[in-house]
Nucleic acid binder design. Sequence first.
DNA 1: GAGAAAGCAAGAGCAGTGCTCACATTTGGC
DNA 2: GCCAAATGTGAGCACTGCTCTTGCTTTCTC
Lengths: 216, 216
Amino acid sequence: MDDIVRLGREQLATVTAAELSLRAVARELGIVSSAIYRYVKDRDELLTLLIVDAYDEVGAAVEDAVAAASRRSPRARALVACQAFRAWSLREPSRFALLFGTPVPGYAAPADRTVEPGTRVPAVLMALLEEAHQTGSVTPPAGPVPRSVRRDMDAIAQEYGLTAPAASLARGLGLWSALVGAVSFEIFDQYGPDTFTDPGAFFDLHLEALITSVGF
Amino acid sequence: MDDIVRLGREQLATVTAAELSLRAVARELGIVSSAIYRYVKDRDELLTLLIVDAYDEVGAAVEDAVAAASRRSPRARALVACQAFRAWSLREPSRFALLFGTPVPGYAAPADRTVEPGTRVPAVLMALLEEAHQTGSVTPPAGPVPRSVRRDMDAIAQEYGLTAPAASLARGLGLWSALVGAVSFEIFDQYGPDTFTDPGAFFDLHLEALITSVGF
DNA sequence: GAGAAAGCAAGAGCAGTGCTCACATTTGGC
DNA sequence: GCCAAATGTGAGCACTGCTCTTGCTTTCTC
């Protein structure tokens, strides 16, 4: 079972999720193609395993990076978290694509297995936001928050035990989506060919702006 | 030829890029599967055609929306541009995925055919930024810009005839990636299930923050 | 220890894919 | 009308996911 996940992960290094081949896994496992179905119900099943695997790994990477900077300010740790996220993603582009790219056609991730690991990274960001709020080191953005958004944010606050205002939480989610967008652009070469000689420098500059915009 | 692109586009409405089937196009065209290769070299070739097609359509949609608001401020038009981008993307999720999702495995978009249409939307944003700069209605972000980023931005400014400072241009590119990230999250349901009762309201709120962060 | 039960592997087979090739047919220009 | 170019045909190869029947091997039970 572990071997299957391992081989799938290895295959994902050279090939994207859409063309992940169960037959190839079986082949490398030294087993006939049909025998793989003893262990894995579906191609989708293997995808789910790999998704959870990847979510957990990137989640752990970000959590570890933040923990290692525990003595620094929430803002500094938010930067660290985002940079750790980028670093993992650049190291594992295919698995990043598996998590945040085009969903595999016909595949719907089973929420009961993927939601919890999938929220680890944003949870870190929200926790830092909460800490900053508690210590008064965050300036909640001014301006009105539409009622529906306020209600949704209140629900999230309730679920995760957050006390930061809705406006801040919304900014936090915005940061999360912007972060993935930035990394996605870099990995998938969306900025245009040869735009950046030092993508990391641009990322850091952009990240500073994003974090500041959150109010950290 | 037009029929092929049209059928491909139709197929993309129900199916994602990775499983776009040349045979299916031929079938719907009432032709035997191998005959399709008279018109289209490759599956990749068809993908390229569809990519260019989609880039052009979303580019035109954004340009039109901005043109229709020509009497409003650059900031307001930037909002309009981003909202038009989101609207098109929600209308055409598969084609959005084709442009901004996981690259199709083994497929590398030929730069000479996709770069120009692919830069139409960011070009609109950069043009608005330039206009705001010219009219003094943009406050360029403070803080140092790393040398490499400055050099890269200068190259872009040169290529597109922009006079706005490097810091502003960098923010403009950041906005572009954050915009795609936000739309991607919404389309691919990355925020989590049932997070937002009114995704549009959240998007607008987030967008305001992004635009403000650019300095508009 | 013998026999039943469960686990595991094999191999054939189906429907689908991209793509190639030799061959047939239609079409257009002279 | 003729010839050549353009277009369509059908068989075939290698690959995919997945199912089903058959058989072997290990393990558990009495």
